[in-house]
Write a protein that binds this DNA or RNA. Structure first.
Lengths: 249, 249
DNA sequence: ATCACCGTTGCACATTATGCAACACAGGAA
DNA sequence: TTCCTGTGTTGCATAATGTGCAACGGTGAT
């Protein structure tokens, strides 16, 4: 692992929280300001960061240039989008998400915003906890056995709510049930008062390549009401899977 | 400047052109594969790159997570968007762009696609050459004197077409004219058969903070026809500037 | 089973990243 | 205008990390 590079990446992540001065970056990294400055200048040369008139550092345009490409490289998004939109409409304007597994997390690739006033917070690009979300459970349940073991071993079972799964044994049971029934739920495990159901999108060989979820706050539908949305969810994921298979051949 | 970091950033830029294997990355960087691997693993740990089942490397989700933020940090986009859309409609469905200066280039922040079949290629996040585009000229013309001299000194006057400005002296004349008339043009200097006009968006202190352009292929409108769009362009940039001032106070 | 290819690990040392001291510059106050 | 403060920048020496080598491990095809 490269220490300099890690530091530079931390700078980028931190600038995602807001602009910074050289001194602030150096303090945050716990390095001398000269060290921070050289990293920042290197990042600036390739437009990963930019400086304003007052020498404040911001994220640069290269991030959105490459970000657009990175997102477009997830081709499943284009295939899924119309189905996600329809699913959102069919379920009464609930929030619908598409997510994929990446390096220890479920990453949101697409979303259809809820039309309701009360909603959950999410953003394309943000990771969701594998042990506390419906999409996370679906994605881990769909991993090959060896990879799944490695992933579970790396999970920090930190609690989001009093209902969050607390250990690997309980998680494995949930994964087994997810595989058996073909869908998963998050019953106020990630966020109090919000229930989700999720199901897998598969490629033509049956491998899980993404997950779709519907999220509903308690005030709109109780848990049983959210579970009642599973047939529509499964129809949508089935349709996406079929379209993906049709597209690949 | 940090050599390791530069190498890592080159990896990201290259992955923007498509997936790569470890060997391909090492060959491209001209380093031993162990060196490339360590950089890739560091990038992977923070989700700047991801690996697929076949050990191919791709851009990671952190890029679109941070990219979204980076673009949103350009607050002028939100203010300008409705005006860009209207300008595009008023000019008969031409391509309209919003750009800002960043580290030696004009960076496209927003665009309204042309509704015509024949159009120019551009993408949000991509840099445009300062010497060959209307937005480039507007942005450089609006820089403070000292900064402008430094920027011009750094320009590589490479030709895009036979009409591209070829040296700093000619460029300075064009900048002077741009300042005087309040707009600039690209008369098939960036791309054969495409003419553009551009004008500045200013903040309440009169500083140029962005540029707007209208681009039209010859087959749709000849150069004089594009110039005839300048009044509408100026009305739009004036309105954006006013809205920006109103928002800042 | 063997082979070829490609990713990974451990080690030593070559090279670069780092911090220090000094300097330069800009902005604000007197 | 001058002075002071704060912050970014430069040059140098050396400490530390990045690098390449050799060997190994794993996978897929024959």
């Amino acid at each position: 692992m490269s220490q300099s590079l890690s530091r530079a990446l931390q700078i980028l992540i931190e600038l995602g929280e807001g602009e910074r001065s050289l001194d602030e970056v150096a303090a945050s990294l716990q390095v001398h300001k000269t060290t921070a400055m050289r990293l920042l200048h290197t990042l600036e040369a390739d437009r990963f960061v930019r400086r304003d008139d007052r020498q404040r550092y911001h994220l640069g345009s290269r991030l959105f240039a490459l970000g657009t490409i990175a997102l477009a490289q997830h081709a499943i998004r284009d295939v899924a989008q119309p189905h996600l939109t329809r699913l959102a409409a069919e379920t009464g304007g609930q929030a619908v998400h598409l997510a994929a597994y990446e390096n220890g997390a479920a990453i949101y690739l697409a979303k259809v915003e809820s039309t309701h006033a009360v909603r959950m917070y999410s953003r394309v690009g943000l990771p969701a906890a594998l042990h506390a979300t419906a999409v996370g459970k679906v994605l881990v349940a769909g991993l090959p056995r060896g990879e799944q073991d490695a992933v579970i071993a790396g999970i920090d079972f930190r609690p989001f709510t009093s209902r969050t799964i607390a250990d690997a044994a309980a998680y494995r049971e949930v994964l087994a049930r997810t595989r058996e029934q073909g869908w998963a739920e998050d019953a106020a495990e990630h966020e109090d008062f919000i229930n989700c159901v999720g199901a897998p999108v598969r490629d033509e060989a049956g491998r899980v390549i993404a997950a779709v979820s519907v999220s509903v706050p308690d005030v709109i539908l109780p848990r049983e009401g959210v579970r009642a949305l599973v047939p529509q969810l499964l129809a949508a994921t089935g349709a996406i899977s079929a379209d993906w298979a049709g597209r690949s051949s």
